[in-house]
């Protein structure tokens, strides 16, 4: 049982009490295979008998409509975009993630706010400002960073769902074609992740491996985390 701890002030008007669940975050750039792993982890954890809840970026009912509209119209400035995502994040955190943790769920979060900070910083948003904005964020119990090299990302996307406008950072106008833009943009994103990896204590997993091997590498730290909890919970009175 943990008292909720936040990066900053959190939600000072609410006392969430003890959170008996665990928040596990999967981070990593586009095309790294996060959602595949979330699915596999969920099935595995449920087989092990844990109640699991998964949540992704921009899923909140509150802002999903607005965000989609904004993306298709290209009308948002970088600060506005950043705040829209933050509103969505806050909504999910307060209304979905924390209640699930209170109820003892293992919450698998497909991304957290780190991706948003990385993306926003590259669009001219002040990093310190973005970090302070996310002072509302709950500190996860585990942050698993799936790190892949650019060539393996390119290969995975080209043989998979393809390169998309946003993932290639085409809005930054750094190159005249999707491939060059993607390579340059994702290289910058990886640099941002490297900085945050130290700042926020990410646990890096080599995502250049096969999905099965990545899965095994992700399971290890999760087992450790959950077993610690189990032994604690089983302590005789």
């Amino acid at each position: 049982m943990n008292k909720a701890t936040f990066y900053g002030a959190g939600f000072p008007y609410r006392d969430f009490g003890k959170l008996s669940g665990k928040l596990i975050v999967l981070e990593g750039t586009d095309g790294v295979g996060r959602s595949t792993q979330v699915k596999m982890l969920r099935r595995w954890l449920e087989d092990e008998g844990y109640a699991v809840s998964d949540t992704g970026l921009t899923r909140s009912e509150l802002t999903s409509a607005g965000l989609e509209a904004a993306k298709s119209g290209h009308t948002l400035g970088p600060i506005t975009m950043s705040l829209f995502y933050a509103a969505d994040f806050a909504d999910r955190l307060e209304n979905l993630i924390i209640p699930a943790l209170q109820a003892g769920f293992v919450v698998l979060s497909d991304r957290y706010f780190y991706s948003a900070v990385a993306r926003d910083s590259l669009r001219g948003v002040n990093r310190v400002w973005a970090k302070e904005l996310y002072g509302i964020a709950l500190k996860p119990d585990l942050i698993l960073y799936m790190k892949a090299s650019i060539p393996s990302l390119v290969s995975r996307l080209i043989h998979g769902r393809g390169l998309n406008y946003w993932e290639a950072g085409m809005d930054l106008h750094i190159a005249d074609n999707f491939y060059d833009s993607f390579v340059q943009y994702q290289t910058m994103i990886l640099e941002q992740f490297d900085i945050m990896s130290e700042e926020y204590n990410f646990l890096t997993v080599n995502a250049d491996q096969t999905p099965e091997k990545i899965f095994e590498d992700l399971k290890k730290p999760i087992l450790e985390l959950l077993h610690n909890r189990l032994t604690k919970g089983k302590k005789p009175k």
Binding site: F11, Y13, E61, L62, T63, T80, L83, F84, A86, A87, A90, D91, E94, N95, I136
Partner: peptide
């Protein structure tokens, strides 16, 4: 469905 935080962020948005 506003909470004080989402209310605050959306007004800033």
């Amino acid at each position: 469905t506003f909470t004080p935080t989402t209310f605050s962020i959306l007004h800033c948005t």
